[in-house]
């Protein structure tokens, strides 16, 4: 990932910052500037997600993409946040196997790095609430 591309979304990745439509109550992550339900009648405000949710589905990656080899095997999951939106993220920090419906919470971790000389990408991953 290029440095500017990461930097533009940095605050959203670090702090799970999305948006919320005051009109219909829907939450968006990543943030949307326009509500998909209310269109021009929508009233969008910035919102920081609590960081809790549950696993909708997951897979264990053994053959990792370039830059992620050291982390393999790792669990990649679709997580539904308690406010509604779903996102794809790693579930880390436990010897317990992930399962559908597992409660998770957000943590601050290293997502990757641009080789030995490149920048280090930080952001949000998830750990089991009870493990």
């Amino acid at each position: 990932m290029s440095v500017p591309r990461f930097w533009r979304k940095l605050d959203s990745r670090y702090n799970l910052k999305g948006t919320h439509c005051v009109e219909c109550g829907e939450y968006f992550y990543p943030p949307r500037n326009t509500c998909v339900n209310c269109r021009r009648q929508g009233q969008i405000e910035a919102y920081r997600f609590k960081g809790t949710g549950e696993i909708v589905t997951y897979t264990v990656i053994h053959t990792a993409a370039e830059g992620f080899e050291k982390q393999a095997p790792y669990t990649l999951a679709i997580i539904k946040l308690d406010e509604g939106p779903s996102l794809t993220a790693q579930v880390v920090g436990s010897s317990v196997n992930a399962y559908i419906g597992m409660r998770v919470r957000s943590v601050f971790r290293k997502l990757g790095e641009g080789g030995e000389r490149g920048m280090i990408y930080y952001g949000t991953k998830f750990i089991p609430v009870d493990g």
């Binding site: 982390q71 790693q90 971790r109 280090i120 930080y122």
Partner: peptide
């Protein structure tokens, strides 16, 4: 530390 933890991630978790 985990494979994806360093002094910065630990500092952030402590600060939060």
């Amino acid at each position: 530390p985990d494979v994806d933890e360093d002094a910065a991630t630990i500092a952030v978790e402590a600060a939060r």
